[in-house]
Design a protein around this nucleic acid. Structure first.
Lengths: 225, 225
DNA sequence: AGTTCCATCAAGGTTATACCTGAGCCCTTT
DNA sequence: AAAGGGCTCAGGTATAACCTTGATGGAACT
């Protein structure tokens, strides 16, 4: 069966990531498999939607940090338009902050770029078969949360932030002011101010200076650690 | 000449990155070239040093954000032990923040993972030939800083700040707002505003957000070393 | 000694941002 | 149907940022 070359019905995978090197790496990994193939690539949100419509993939591998809008936003949009489509989120960021909100937004799995190619292949196959993939560590943690009745003590109050709030928080940490953030996200300045206020409440911060300070620290710890 | 297969002396490249997918991507890119080859891979600082000793690469491609210690720390250590070795820093982060730091620490180039494979190949070849690679945008910016500054190259425009300005800059970087700074230094708020304006001029910054961003960055780099 | 330069300090006035209250809409949960 | 949370935005006031202007005193050139 396996030896039958391309006659086996291969699962079609669309790659969405703005790092050409990484796309090349995962594309090679996938195309080496008899049962998988890359049907297309995209490096931003618009191209991703177009590519889904034209290539009809069985699975989308989606980077959580795209240029322009965040991967989570794209994930939500795609899920609205193509509810049946399976999506595996790929990220270099800490799973404790991003994985659960990715799953809540409709992803079928979350895996970090730091994982071995074996594990990534395993995640791909699991998601294609309709299952949900998360790391063992995160899976255990989520079980504990369920059994524990309510929500576990969040390891960081940053997990309390909503998706939009986290997006704003991240942009603040990258050094952007309120106005540029509003423009980038196509929102009213008033809305961004509102998000900032909520972030300050949730993180128990008292001033704009403190907010910027913590945001920059967090962005830095995310990128270096 | 080119047609002589592997008889041409290929340049040996060591990859240091903790993302297997990305290593696979860049390895494939390099090994497709007749004049380049991957001589080894490493995913943390220790293995990187060992690999340099055993494989004697002509060039090291080094991710700036490694697990454990940061890539910049590793860069400094490697430069102490192997001063002749060329190093191209690879990063997914904004070059305006990290590139100059990397070059000062001894790197021969800095390129972002978002760049096309063509540009990455170009950077690899440029660094192997003993030249320095930075993006066109960053190169122009650095030139402007040199020309716009004084005759000599200030290693950092921060050295242009007066004592008082540096004091204010440092307090901004510690997360204090204008009012608290004025109180702490027994000055009028207006005076602190004036200092802030002069700092912004000297560092070529355009907004308060940028100022705070750079100030925090600087304070952090000072405390880390 | 005079001129120039600039660091330091500061005011007035304009614009932008921060902060507070409130509110409509949508979705999910109950 | 009701309740809660998330997302969006507005009005109004307080505060901070920003621009211009300018006084003072020290350093440096010439």
């Amino acid at each position: 069966m396996k030896a039958n070359g391309t006659k086996v019905a291969q699962k079609r995978i669309l790659l969405v990531d703005d790092h050409p090197l990484l796309r090349q790496g995962i594309a090679q990994l996938i195309n080496q498999q008899a049962d998988l193939m890359v049907c297309g690539e995209a490096d931003d949100a618009q191209k991703a939607v177009t590519a889904i419509e034209t290539t009809k993939p069985d699975l989308v591998v989606l980077d959580i940090s795209l240029k322009g809008s965040s991967g989570i936003e794209l994930l939500k949009n795609v899920k609205v338009r193509f509810p049946q489509l399976s999506i595996l989120m790929l990220s270099m960021h800490d799973e404790t902050v991003f994985a659960q909100r990715a799953l809540r937004a409709g992803a079928s799995g979350y895996i970090m770029k730091q994982e071995s190619t074996d594990k990534i292949l395993g995640a791909l196959r699991k998601v294609i078969n309709g299952e949900v993939y998360v790391s063992d560590r995160l899976g255990a943690r989520m079980l504990t949360q369920l059994v524990g009745g309510k929500v576990m003590a969040p390891s960081s109050p940053i997990e309390e932030l909503s998706d939009r709030e986290l997006e704003v928080f991240s942009l603040i940490g990258q050094g952007h002011g309120t106005r540029p953030i509003a423009e980038k996200l196509h929102l009213s300045v008033k809305t961004v101010e509102s998000h900032r206020a909520h972030i300050k409440e949730k993180l128990h911060l008292n001033s704009a200076a403190e907010l910027v300070h913590h945001a920059i620290q967090w962005v830095q710890s995310e990128s270096i650690g």
